[in-house]
Every structure is written in C-alpha cells, then in structure tokens.
Amino acid sequence: MAFLSLEGLTKRYADVAAVADTNLTIEKGEFVSLLGPSGCGKTTTLQMIAGFVDVTEGRIVLDGRDVTHAKPSSRGLGVVFQSYALFPHMTVADNVAFGLLMRKVAKSERDERVRKALSLVRLDAHAERYPRELSGGQRQRVALARALVITPPVLLLDEPLSNLDANLREEMQYEIRRIQREVGITTLMVTHDQSEALSISDRVVVMEAGRITQIDAPYRLYEHPRTRFISDFVGKANLVGGRAGSAGQQEVCKVGEGDFQLSLRPEKIRLTEVGQGLLDGEIRTRFFLGSQWLYRVETPLGELTVVRPNEGSLPLEDGTRVGLVWSTELLRPLEEDVRA
C-alpha cells in the first residue's frame, strides 16, 4: 500500500513542461532519493508535493488523502530547505517550537517535544543560540529538528547537504540516515549528488528533463543503469560499441561490431600481462586517488578508464603495455537517452 503517490504529476510553465507525467509511489518508512542534474525538475516535484508550486495536471495522494490542491500549511509535511530557511530572529528552541506553536500545542508539551527533538539531532546545548551563531552543520540539524518535531507523515529534504563542505557532508549523510531510521519516517530527498543518493537511500529515482528514467535500489541502479546518461551520471562508465542479445534467460553482450552501446564500469576491468587479456592496451596516464589508482589506457576500442585498488604495491608506469580482462556478464547494454 503506497503511502505517498504521485499520479501523472505535471507542471507546465507556459508551454514548457518542467515536470511531465511523473508517477511514483513511496512506501511508509522508505527513504527515497530524487536524483538528477540541475534543471531536471526534481526540485519542482518536491515543491509540488510540499504545496509551494501549483500542480498543472495529475494528483498527489498522501496516506489515502488527495492533497493535490491543499494549502502547504494544511499538508503537515516536514520540509528541510537547501538554505535551511531558519528564522534568523528566533532562537534555536523557538525555531523548533514554531510548528508546535502553530498547532497550538500547550507550552509544557511543547517544551518537552522541542527538548526531545533537539536531543535527537544532538543540539541540546544550543537551544538558546541564534541561527547566526551556529555552524552550517548545526543549522542543518536545527532545520531537521524543526521539520521532525511536528511528527510529519513525510519528510522532504531539498538538497540538504549541498551547502556543507565535503567532510561535513559525509558526516551529515550518516546522521540523516541514523535519524531517519530512528524515527522511521518516510523521506523523500532531492539531490544532484549521486554518491549521496546511493549511500543513504532505499531507492533512487533518476530524473532527466522533467521525466523519471529509472527507479531502482542503489546497488541495482549502479549495476544496471538503463540509459547512457544514467551510466555516466551515476558512477563512472566506459562506453563501448557492441552487440547484445539473449541466450535463454541470460542476456549476452559482446564488445566489437554492433548497434548497441555497452557500459563497462572502470573497476570491473582487471589488468594482466600483454596478450593474456581480452584486449591489449598501453597506459597513457595514471592518477592517484588515495584508495585507488585510475589508469587511462589506450586500446583498439578507444581510451578506457580502469580503476584498481591501491594494495600497497607500486603502480604501473605510464607507457606500460598491459592486457585488459573483464567478465562479459558485467557488460550492460544501454538505451538511448530521453530528450526533452
């Protein structure tokens, strides 16, 4: 039974469809990410769910109730904004208490719930501070506490981590996941960062040019990208020409002549002695990524990217001739990209 469902949701500005005929169902307690490049319509979708943008066509159904045209204030959803959108003239505690105040929750209960929400995001000590006195990560937590304290049916996160620096971003990813699990709240997160989407979601929804092009669990999305765009946007991919067909239940792909584009992940290629692999090539350049080495290898199929783990031994020199080997079941045939 779907908890939140979008049915044929469409938003048009003049003649341009920002979001076209979008269908999505989210189960209770699920963490779903809406992933896509900027301008793909993911934020518009979130804003329609929150009620800030009018729906042109289609329906939004929340827990059996049609909320397509309900006012934002009556939907009761928790929203965390990219800019955090804290109220600068209120203390942290007052920010968090705002939604309860609007619901006319009695003062004693309000104080208690604010205290609990702040302790959930580990900000108990900062209740009387003002937003400007907090760091980016702390503001993010306040925004989260403010959205959660009203016990919303669904939590909407709009690029929640994009204003944080790299280290903090990773830490907050785990933090958001921890809190989401602890509260068990149904969550929809909009992001343009594929690693963010892969690491914390139960399912990832990829949007391109106003349309959903793939919905899958993170691992499946990474291993079976449907289109050329997705194979490139989610992780890195080598694109090679080839054939694809099926033999019984198995899908069989072969590199070489053919009408198909095949995707081959760089870490799926192993290096071996010349002549021992499926293909020979010459290392052009190498890049040190810390935990890995990235090689660019010139081959008859074009330049291929190969990623090997850094196992403590010295890497191969530029100009070394190597053999490349992979198991053919890891080749993925791709569909053509959608066009707006």
């Binding site: 800019s83 804290l86 600068p88």
Partner: peptide, 15 residues
Amino acid sequence: MDRSAEQAAESLGAG
C-alpha cells in the same frame, strides 16, 4: 530575504 523561510513557516502550519 530568504523566501524559503516563509515556505518553511507555511509548511509548519502558519496561516
């Protein structure tokens, strides 16, 4: 002014 602060208030139930 950050308009999303107003949106946040609306989503929290402010009339």
